[in-house]
Each structure stands twice: as C-alpha cells, then as structure tokens.
Design a protein around this nucleic acid. Structure first.
Length: 546
RNA sequence: GGCCUUAUGGUCAAGCGGUUAAGACGACGCCCUCUCACGGCGUAAACCCGGGUUCGAGUCCCGGUAAGGUCACCA
C-alpha cells in the first residue's frame, strides 16, 4: 500500500504545511518553571452551567497562582450544537464571576486561532501525517453498518466499538479504497489503534490520584466526514500546540483518557497532566444525579444573576466545594480577597458533592455582611436596574435615604452586623416597606382591634421624633402600662396570666402598624429613617384601618 | 452488561495504622433581647457490609453491595 499516495488522495487541504511549521509557529511558552498553562474549552451552546464556572475557577486558580496562563478555547466542532452569540455569553457570564482569561477566543494571544473550526489545516496536516505512517485510514462504513455491528456486539456480550475484527475498513485493499473514493462514498478518518485492552497502566490523575487505565483499542474517528476533527483529535493537537500543561476537566472525560493517551503518543506529543473533577450533583427524590440544565434552574449561571447572588459569594461557595480547606481559611479571613487563598488541586473532593443552596445562602449572607452600605447600594441598584420592577428601581433614586435604610438592615455601625441579606432580589424585597410605593401592609395583629387602636392612639399622642432610643422605648413602656400590659419582663414571666401581654406585644403592634411586618430591625431607627411625617402618616393609616 | 471511579452524621467534609472520630451548613434547645437578625452556649446526628493483615483498622488488602461516570462521525 502506498500510504503517501493515499494521504494525498484523502487529505486535499491545500493549506497544509510541513509539520515543523506548526512547531515553529507555536513554540514552547517562555514561562517560569512550575508555571501552569490551563484552559477552559466549552462548546458554544449558549448555556453556561454551574459546572463550567466550577471547572473554570479551578483552572484559573492553578494558572494564576503559578504565574502561568489561562486561556479560552472554543470547541465548535459540532455544528449541530452551535448557537449564535454563545461566545459572548461565555465571556459575559464568566466575567461577572470574576473569571478572567489571559488569552483566547475573542481576545488576543499567540497560540490561536482559538476556535477549532478555524484550525482545520493543522488537524489536516496531522491526520495526513498519520495516514502516511499507516496509523490512520479511511472508513466508509455507514451509520447503519455501524449500528449493526454494535447490535451484534451487545447481543453477544462483546466489547462494543470499532476495533479488531469489527473494524471492517481497517484492512481494505488499495483497490477497494480507491473504488470507494471514486464512487464518491463519504468517509471518515480513523486511528489505526495499536493498543490492547488487556494491558493496563497506572496513571496519576491530579485529583483522583493513582488510577488504572486500560489501553485503547478503538479505531476512533479522528476526522469526521466533513473534515472536522472529533473532540479527541482536536484535544490532542490543540492542547499540544497551545502548550497546555494541565488539563482540569469533568470526570465524564476519564473514560476517554485512553484514547487521548494513545493519540498523544502516536502524534509524538508530550502528554499534559490531567485532573478529572467530579460533577456537582443534586438530590432528585431518592437518587442523586448531576445538576441538570433542563430540570434545575440553579444549574444555569444566569440563575445567580437573576436572583442577585453576589458574584463573590458564588465564588466562595464554589471554592468550598472545590477545596476542602477553603472554608476553614474563609472563617479565619472573612475579609481577605479570595485570591489570597492558596488553592491546591489535590484537595479537590474525589466524589461528587451535592449542591446545597442552604450552604450557598449562608456563605452569601456572611459575604454580604462584609459590604458597607455604599457598596450594597451599588450592588442592589445594579441588580434592580437589570431585573427589578419600576418601583424597585425607584428605591435607588435617593441615595442618602436608601443608604440609611441599608445601614440599618445590615447593622452597620452596630456591635455585630446583621445577616439578613442573601441575594439582591431578596434584599430589595426586604426593604420594600421603607418605600411608600410598595408599602402595602396587611396588618396581621395578634390582639383585638380595640386594644390595638387604643395602643396606637396612646403612642401617637406621646410620640416625639426628637426622642432618642431610650426615651422612645420608655414611652413604649408607658403605653404598655396604661393598657395593663406588663412593662417588666421578669414580672411577666413570673405570672404571664396576670397580663394581656407585655412590652414586646406593644412593640409588635407599633411595628406592624408602621412597617406591616411583625419582624424588622430596630423600630426606633426605622421611625427615624422614615421621618416624623411619614411615621405619623403610617400610624394614622393603621388607626384608620381599625 | 463491560470498564473506570467513589463510599465518614441529613449536607460539605477533616482524618494518612493508636483521636473522647475535628469543623462548617442545616435541625433542635437555652441565653441575650421590644420582634427579627446577629452573637454566645449546648444537644441530637456518621466511619456501607463481610472477610483478612496487624498487638491494634474509618485508615492497608480481598470480596460483596450501593452510587456516579462512560461505552457516537456530541463535546
């Protein structure tokens, strides 16, 4: 068989250059020893999964901590899955969470193009080389034929796939090949695998540790009939020429690692280090499963933006999943920038973690409590501008007023910060009663109307905006006393039956009357923020309602 | 089904042959307190099962079992 002739017949790309050209075009990167080159290589499907962020964070940390490079490559080899504007989505959503690429698609960089479709000539050059060396061959099998052999294999409990005796096109004669070609039959290029499934090697995975890897014996497709490479082939070539040193990717790739190992070997490339991380899971009834794009809204990165989770909070939560000792560090240094944490790939969990929104909320609350009222204002305003209702947008018209509201709700200036805010959506709803546009109380008192009316009336007559907190509370107590409520908690606790209620019940009536809620931050401060006029107006409204 | 991986409280997890088996979230209780939130204190809650190896096993080995991944001209 004349392999050279076959290679010429099969790969007709005129752009193909000698192999040395590519090696020279993409030289080894001049980086410090130990610097890691990592990448994120998503498909442009237009959907960004939480898992994308998860793996991006891991890769980004490793690269930047080591003084290396983190780049973005677009795996657009599957025409069917491609979505317009998807790359923009990738950039935007990752940028929101503070993940920055050093180079890659739609950015600068000397190792591009970073879109696989634009790299066809390189793949062709190497496919051609493999054919010349007799390590790849054309396959004319139809989908139907492939399916038939697969059925035969599964029926007979044989290892499925295209290999050995089942690789019909592997040993086609020269005549047969050219006949098929002449007949215009479509073909793919397959690797002529040299592996043996009975041979196993131990392999060091950066996250899983020592694993055993079986040699590949599948004659996998490297070039599809449209001349576009499969993931496997593109991976080997791209990660070699982009000089990736470490590939952190989802564990769904672990089973195709043998293919990649063989491809790198056959191509004469040095194998990068690999780390296969587990995917984030979710409880679905009794069983666990991967977070699903279709079933779980929280699988999508847009979910966190719509809810207004602070990007730092999401990052922190991701880090707790990513590195088991991160949480301890975070507890110790709640205010330090996350990037000061020394991330280590070996501390990644070996089994898939369940996504826990309660934990996210907790991380988020404590993170939000590190902001000051001005930062919170900006954050909430940005959210409201994008996702809020018109009323909610108007909350941010008066910066001074709203910052006072926020300072109160966040406990700024107090001994301990409050932790009421978990995300922007919830926070904006939380402060709604401070704004007349959205103040719509349902006055759920726990006492009868007559009593409440008496209390409100009584308070209104003594209320003085100029009172400090203590004087104010003394008046609340006085009102309690006038109505037979206990003013002394000890006395009340000693004999609760002797009173209709105590001061806290009086405070609750006032609270409900002015805010519509039974639970709020400090009532005196609320009245101070609302102002005398508005406080009185609300009291009157409440009284009128009784 | 084959192959690979994993297995500590409800969840995330420390642990690397000898521990009263950390910690965090959540739950519950108490305290603080005008409510809530914060904070403080406390309670309940775990080594998948069976065999080895060893003076000694959550930890090492071998079997089960269960869960996850994967078996495409998708990535």
């Amino acid at each position: 068989m004349d392999w050279n002739k076959l290679a010429e017949a099969l790969i007709t790309d005129e752009n193909v250059k000698p192999l040395e050209y590519y090696e020279a075009l993409y030289p080894e990167r001049a980086l410090e020893k130990g610097a890691q080159v990592t990448r994120l290589a998503p498909s442009p499907t237009g959907f960004m999964h939480l898992g994308n962020l998860y793996v991006a964070l891991a890769n980004e940390r490793i690269a930047h901590q080591s003084g290396g490079v983190f780049y973005l490559r677009i795996e657009d080899t599957d025409e069917k899955r491609k979505v317009e504007g998807a790359v923009e989505v990738i950039h935007q959503s990752l940028k929101y969470f503070g993940v920055a690429f050093d180079e890659g698609a739609d950015l600068c960089g000397d190792y591009g193009p970073y879109y696989q479709r634009q790299r066809a000539e390189i793949y062709h050059a190497y496919a051609k080389e493999l054919i010349k060396r007799g390590l790849a061959y054309p396959c004319f099998c139809t989908e139907e034929e492939l399916e038939n052999t697969r059925n035969h294999q599964t029926e007979n409990k044989l290892l499925p796939g295209y290999y050995g005796e089942f690789a019909k096109c592997r040993n086609l004669t020269e005549e047969e090949i050219y006949e098929n070609l002449k007949a215009g039959k479509p073909y793919v290029i397959r690797l002529r695998s040299q592996g043996d499934v009975n041979v196993k090697h131990t392999f060091r995975d950066e996250v899983k540790g020592e694993i055993t890897v079986t040699e590949n014996n599948q004659d996998v497709v490297i070039l599809k009939s449209d001349g576009i490479p499969t993931y496997h082939f593109a991976h080997a070539i791209d990660d070699h020429f982009m000089r990736t040193t470490l590939v952190i990717r989802g564990e769904e790739w672990l089973s195709s690692l043998p293919i990649h190992i063989e491809l790198f070997k056959v191509l004469g490339f040095r194998l990068p280090k690999y780390g296969h991380n587990c995917s984030i899971q979710k409880m679905d009834g009794e069983t666990r499963r991967k977070l699903s794009k279709r079933k779980d809204p929280e699988a999508s990165l847009t979910f966190y933006r719509e809810q207004g989770y602070h990007p730092t909070a999401v990052r922190k939560y991701m880090m707790t999943l990513l590195n088991s000792n991160f949480e301890e560090w975070l507890l110790k240094f709640p205010d330090k920038p996350i990037d000061e944490f020394k991330y280590s790939i070996g501390k990644m969990g070996k089994s898939g973690a369940l996504f826990d929104i309660l934990k996210l909320n907790d991380v988020s609350k404590t993170m939000m409590a590190t902001l000051n009222e001005s930062e919170m204002f900006d954050f909430l305003k940005a959210w409201a501008d994008e996702f809020g209702s018109d009323e909610q947008k108007s909350y941010f018209a008066d910066r001074t007023y709203t910052e006072r509201v926020l300072a109160l709700c966040m406990g700024v200036g107090g001994k301990k910060r409050r932790k009421d805010f978990v995300c922007a959506k919830q926070a904006v709803e939380f402060i709604s009663y401070f704004f007349d546009e959205t103040f719509c109380p349902d006055y759920a008192y726990r006492f009868d109307k007559q009593t409440v009316k008496k209390v409100l009336l009584g308070f209104k007559t003594v209320y003085d905006y100029a009172d400090d907190a203590q004087a104010w509370f003394d008046k609340v107590k006085a009102v309690a006393g006038e109505n037979g409520f206990a003013t002394d908690m000890k006395a009340y606790k000693a004999d609760p039956a002797a009173f209709p209620g105590n001061v806290s019940d009086i405070a609750e009536m006032l609270r409900i009357a002015t805010t519509g809620l039974a639970n709020t931050p400090d009532l005196w401060t609320i009245m101070q923020i609302l102002g005398e006029e508005r406080t009185l107006a609300r009291l009157n409204k409440a009284i009128g309602n009784l």
